[in-house]
């Protein structure tokens, strides 16, 4: 169920846009209305989610430390794993966002006869994630050639290096291979690793299926179903969308509308799903806080200002009589008057 339902959903999206975009006149819906709507929901939803997180108080200082924390000045501490200063936190965050450092710590648990439980480093997840995310980034940057007029040199250079193998015409891109490799490895991991399969849900499979479908429709459009793929008409539409004068100047093949519709679906799905880790990684309290609880007091924003701090000394003053009566040790004994009063 959790494997097939998301797949059926992606197939339904493909069929819906395929049939929909074939109806005369509907190209304006699938080529213009849907992308605008999707982009609006993406940006609005993204801001809504981030502001929602910004409004949530962080009651405790909870950085995850994975190394020697700062204690005494002559004891060397781990600046990246237990950052003390803001610059160290920024360095840690930067490496997390850019290199996915925490995935380097992924482990695989195995039970051997005995029973004996072992944890073994498993860096595959990191490799697959790097493959996928960077390929996707390059692909998005490459697509800017269709949205920017004139095309900046940076974009054409990215495109040149991506197609440097010069295989076929139109040239094959390296990222087309690496993103599919990354996606199928990430999907395979969810199928073949028992532990991961057990904790995987439909909403883990759906984005994988959807992005695979987007990549496959893109590859089909570029190399195999070229009839009606008029790149000038496509660029005119894309530039039109971002200049708010969209026009469709020629008939474009259905595969293009399917591709656009799937990307729109991804944009709409994005803010309301686990894909929000794109924004969330910056707002992770376990990563973006300094390990300085012993130097600086973290005030819980939830605290009611009317509730004053209650020290132990004040607590004992309040309950000393009862504590002594119950035989609980006290730091300050009862005065003679108090004991006399207690005995009466």
């Amino acid at each position: 169920m959790k494997y097939t339902f998301p797949l059926a959903a992606v197939v339904a999206l493909v069929l819906f846009s395929w049939v929909g975009a074939s109806i005369p006149g509907m190209q304006y819906i699938f080529g213009i209305v849907v992308p605008y709507l999707a982009m609006g929901l993406f940006l609005g939803g993204f801001c809504y989610r981030v502001i929602g997180w910004a409004r949530s108080p962080v009651p405790f200082k909870i950085p995850t430390t994975c190394g020697q924390g700062f204690s005494l000045p002559w004891i060397k501490y781990d600046k990246l794993e237990a950052p003390l200063t803001t610059s160290q936190v920024i360095a840690r965050m930067f490496l997390e966002v850019v290199l996915f450092r925490s995935l380097w710590r992924n482990t695989k648990a195995t039970v051997y006869k005995g029973p004996k439980l072992t944890y073994e480093s498993s860096k595959w997840l990191w490799l697959f994630a790097m493959l996928f995310h960077y390929s996707f980034l390059v692909i998005i940057l490459r697509h800017m050639r269709l949205f920017l007029n004139p095309v900046p040199a940076v974009i054409s250079n990215i495109e040149f290096f991506d197609g440097i193998l010069q295989i076929g015409a139109p040239t094959m891109y390296l990222t087309e291979v690496t993103i599919l490799l990354g996606l199928f490895l990430l999907l395979g991991r969810r199928f073949f690793n028992r532990h991961v399969r057990y904790i995987s849900l439909a909403n883990d499979f759906f984005p994988l299926y959807l992005i695979i479908a987007i990549v496959l429709t893109g590859i089909l459009m570029r190399f195999f179903l070229r009839s009606g793929v008029d790149i000038i008409a496509i660029k005119r539409l894309a530039v039109g969308l971002v200049t708010f004068h969209p026009t469709i100047i020629a008939d474009i093949g259905s595969i293009f509308y399917i591709h656009v519709f799937l990307v729109s679906a991804l944009l709409v799905y994005f803010p309301f799903s686990k894909l929000m880790h794109m924004g969330g990684v910056f707002l992770s309290p376990t990563r973006n806080m300094a390990n300085d609880t012993r130097m600086r007091r973290h005030i819980n924003p939830w605290n009611d200002p009317n509730i004053k701090p209650h020290s132990y000394a004040a607590y004992e003053d309040e309950f000393r009589k009862d504590m002594v009566e119950q035989g609980i040790p006290v730091e300050k004994p009862l005065t003679a008057e108090e004991s006399a009063a207690a005995e009466e």
Partner: peptide, 17 residues
């Protein structure tokens, strides 16, 4: 983030060419 995502809008400045 929003400026980055809407970069094509600022870059073309309403001129589709």
């Amino acid at each position: 983030f929003v400026l980055f995502i809407t970069f094509p809008v600022w870059y073309n400045r309403g001129n589709a060419g």
